[in-house]
């Protein structure tokens, strides 16, 4: 008796849930029919939210992935640019959309996981989305102008240690990984430089070219690599745990004795709202993996920055958790 009762209660609950889901699906007017099974996915237009303005480097990267997805899925992919609030506006849009795989978002770590701890009005958490995989990762590089007296990283850090705060290091923004990493350099190793935030790479490189700062700590993106190529800038150290293949002679911060400073890498990836069926997440994961092998996509994204081995959903989640555990105490203190 009790069993049947409980059974019918569950059935009722189930029906209600389906009804509610289909209602909100219709009302939301979002992606596609939510009641369909994961096997049919995708059968409708997919929206890809990009937390940057159209035309910027991240937007272009997202668009080349989107084009490949269209080919793989045979469905239209709409890139929806929602810049603002350190990516929080786009994230809110993602969280409020149906968890059916028809709305996905480009995420940018560390910003995506750090913003809620920096801005009290940003209320989402890292549990509100599920990760799909990494698109590109761009490490950071510490660089000086070629006229600088510092030939090697050791000389630079020795000078910083001898004269706390005397060396000025430009970073591309106030809450970037580079800025946080320099704060950790001071807190954990007692090496104090003055961090000067600029607005993006263009301003930052102008400041170094004009000798207004002693060094810059910046994403090793193509524009910066060009300055190394031309000999105007000299790389002193890179941020990842291992050396990068396109700057083979440049030591890592870890090699230089700063064991824990390995997180200043900008990771761009894809995410979906939490609650998205696991089968759909894994379909998206597989498709991303396939797309990242496409030579044309790799070229558009920058061969240097696409991980040699695909970084999938679980591994990306693990990395984000690690970033949160290391950076949260720094930004909230």
């Amino acid at each position: 008796m009790t069993l049947t009762k409980r059974g019918s209660f569950l059935l009722l609950l189930g029906t209600l849930a389906v009804l509610l889901a289909s209602c909100s699906g219709g009302g939301g007017g979002g992606g596609g029919g939510s009641a369909e099974s994961a096997e049919e996915y995708p059968s409708d237009t997919i929206t890809m939210l990009v937390p940057y303005t159209a035309g910027g480097p991240t937007d272009l990267a997202a668009r080349s992935v989107a084009t490949c997805f269209e080919g793989e899925f045979g469905q239209t992919l709409v890139v929806d640019n929602r810049p603002g609030a350190g990516g929080a506006l786009a994230m809110n849009e993602l969280i409020n959309s149906e968890a059916d795989g028809y709305t996905i978002k480009v995420i940018a770590a560390p910003a995506t996981v750090i913003t809620p701890y920096v801005e009290e009005n940003v209320t989402y958490t890292e549990d509100d989305f599920v990760t799909i995989g990494v698109i590109t990762e761009i490490p950071s590089v510490l660089a000086v102008s070629s006229a600088s007296e510092y030939e090697m990283a050791e000389e630079f850090f020795d000078a910083a240690q001898a004269n706390p705060g005397a060396l000025n290091v430009g970073v591309p923004g106030a809450t970037t990984s580079q800025s946080i990493e320099l704060q950790r350099l001071a807190e954990e190793y007692g090496v104090q430089v003055t961090t000067v935030p600029f607005n993006g790479n263009a301003e930052l490189t102008a400041a170094l070219l004009g000798n207004n700062v002693d060094a810059i700590f910046v994403n090793a993106s193509e524009d910066i690599l060009d300055y190394f190529e031309s000999g105007e800038f000299r790389p002193l150290a890179v941020s990842p745990a291992e050396r990068v293949e396109y700057l083979p002679d440049v030591p890592t911060l870890r090699e230089l004795g700063y064991e824990t400073l390995t997180y200043s890498t900008s990771i761009f990836g894809l995410a979906a709202p939490s609650g998205t069926p696991p089968e759909i997440v894994s379909t998206l994961e597989d498709t991303l993996s396939t797309c990242l092998e496409d030579p044309q996509v790799r070229e558009q994204l920058g061969e240097n920055y696409v991980p040699d081995e695909f970084v999938g959903s679980e591994e990306l989640r693990r990395r984000l958790d690690e970033i949160v555990s290391v950076y949260k105490p720094v930004v909230t203190s």
Binding site: G84, A85, N92, V118, N121, G173, A174, S179, P197, N199
Partner: peptide, 20 residues
């Protein structure tokens, strides 16, 4: 919007659209 050095939001009155 965001303070250019500290990175924290100012005068946004809790409106997320004003953070940038």
């Amino acid at each position: 919007g965001q303070d250019p050095v500290a990175g924290t939001a100012r005068f946004t009155f809790g409106v997320q659209d004003l953070i940038s």
